[in-house]
Amino acid sequence: MSSSPVFSSPFTSDAFRVKVGLAEMLKGGVIMDVVNAEQAKVAEDAGASAVMALERVPSDIRRDGGVARMSPVAKIREIQEAVSIPVMAKCRIGHLAEARVLEALEVDFIDESEVLTPADEENHVYKHDYKVPFVCGCRNLGEALRRIGEGAAMIRTKGEAGTGDIVHAVKHLREVTRQMKALTLLSRDEWMAAAKQLGAPFELVVWVAENGRLPVPNFAAGGIATPADAALCRILGAEAVFVGSGIFKSADPAVRARAIVEATTHWDDPARVAKASENLGEGMKGIEAAKLVEAELLQTRGW
C-alpha cells in the first residue's frame, strides 16, 4: 500500500493515467446495471460498453429497503465469465474491505456508490491506494473534486437512482457545469477563496479554472429511463451514461437497452433519437423524485 503524501501529486503517475485511460475508453457509451450473468449478456448484446454488478437494482433497493451491500462474489464471478466487456461493481461508501475484495476479484472499475448503504458516515476510500480505478457520484463541483482528490478516475452525477426521474441528474450536471464555468472567470487571487467555498482541493480548483472541465471523464447517472433521457444528459455535457433500473425494470430490456445505446451515440441527431424511441414497450413506472422525503433520498449519502 502506498504511503506517499498527497502533495507529491499522484495524478501524473502511470498508475493514475492507466485508470483514467479506461474511463476514456468508456466515453460515448452506456454502462448498464446488472444483477446476474443473464442480464449481463443482454446488456453486452445490446451494445453496453460495460456492465455494473450490484446485488439489487436501485428501484428494488428503494422498494424493499434493508441494508444494500456489495454484490455476492459468486454473482460477480458469473458476470465476469459471461461477458468480454469491462465489469464494474459497487462497494459501499468508505467500505475499505469491500473495495479490496472487488480489487481481488479483478473487477475493472469500482463504483463507491451512494446507492448502497454507506459504511462510513465521514470518510470515503482513499482511492489512490488501489490499483483498480474508481468512479464516484457527485451533486456539485466541490463533491466531484473531493472524490478526484481521493483518487477517483471517473465522476458521475448522482441523480436520484431508482426513480426513473431524470430531474436530479439534470440538476447535478447543470450545477457542476455552472460551477466550472464560474471558476474559469476568476482571477488567480480568487482561487483559494473558491477552493474554501467549494470544500475542494486547491490544486484541482486551479486545474478546473484553467481548463474549464473536470480532469477526469464526467458521466451521468441516476434516473435515466429512456433514449431521450440519455440524449439529454449528453446534450448537457455528460460524456457517457449509466443506466440502472431503467432497463431491467422496463417491459422489454433488450430492446430498450439497444435503443439507449443508439441514442447515447447519436444524441445530437434528433431523427436517430426519435427512431430509437419507437416501439420500446412500457418503460419503468418510476417515482417522481420531488415526492420523496429527505430520508428516502440516496443522493445525500456521500460527504
Binding site: 468508456l26 453486452e44 451494445g47 453496453a48 460495460a50 445505446v261
Partner: peptide
C-alpha cells in the same frame, strides 16, 4: 479509436 469493439460492432 479505442473503446469497446463489441459496442462499435453493434452500432
Amino acid at each position: 479509436p479505442g473503446g469497446e469493439s463489441t459496442t462499435m460492432w453493434k452500432l
